[in-house]
Amino acid sequence: MRILLTGGSGMVGQNLQEHPSAAEYEVLAPSSRTLDLNNQQAVVDYIEAKRPDIVIHAAGQVGGIQANMADPVGFLVNNSLMGLHVINAAYQAGIKYCVNLASSCMYPRSAPNPLTEDQILAGELEPTNEGYALAKITATRLCQYIGRVNEELRYITLIPCNLYGRHDKFDPAHSHMIPAVIRKIHEAAKAEASTVEIWGDGEARREFMYVEDLADCVFEVIRMIRGGQEVPDLMNAGLGKDYSINEYYRAIAEVVGFKGSFSHDLTKPVGMRQKLIDSRRLNALGWHASTSLKDGIEKTYQFFLEEYPND
Score class of each variant (00 low, 15 high):
61 Q>S: 12
63 G>I: 04
65 I>V: 15
67 A>R: 06
69 M>R: 06
70 A>D: 13
70 A>P: 11
71 D>F: 14
73 V>I: 15
74 G>V: 04
75 F>T: 01
76 L>T: 03
77 V>A: 10
81 L>G: 03
81 L>P: 04
82 M>R: 06
83 G>V: 09
86 V>G: 04
87 I>Q: 03
87 I>T: 14
88 N>A: 12
88 N>C: 12
91 Y>E: 02
94 G>F: 09
96 K>T: 15
101 L>N: 07
101 L>D: 05
102 A>Y: 03
102 A>H: 05
104 S>D: 11
105 C>L: 11
107 Y>K: 04
112 P>V: 15
112 P>G: 10
114 P>V: 10
114 P>A: 10
115 L>H: 08
115 L>C: 07
116 T>N: 07
116 T>S: 13
118 D>T: 14
118 D>Q: 11
118 D>A: 14
122 A>W: 05
122 A>F: 08
122 A>L: 13
122 A>E: 05
123 G>E: 01
124 E>C: 07
124 E>L: 12
127 P>R: 05
128 T>M: 09
129 N>T: 09
129 N>H: 13
132 Y>V: 06
133 A>D: 03
134 L>S: 06
134 L>N: 09
137 I>R: 07
138 T>L: 15
138 T>R: 07
139 A>T: 13
140 T>F: 01
140 T>L: 04
140 T>S: 06
144 Q>P: 06
145 Y>F: 15
145 Y>K: 11
149 V>E: 07
149 V>Y: 13
150 N>W: 05
150 N>F: 12
153 L>Q: 14
153 L>E: 12
153 L>Y: 07
154 R>E: 10
157 T>I: 12
158 L>H: 01
158 L>A: 03
159 I>T: 08
159 I>Q: 00
161 C>N: 04
162 N>A: 13
163 L>S: 00
163 L>P: 00
166 R>P: 00
166 R>T: 01
167 H>T: 04
167 H>Q: 03
168 D>T: 01
171 D>K: 04
172 P>W: 02
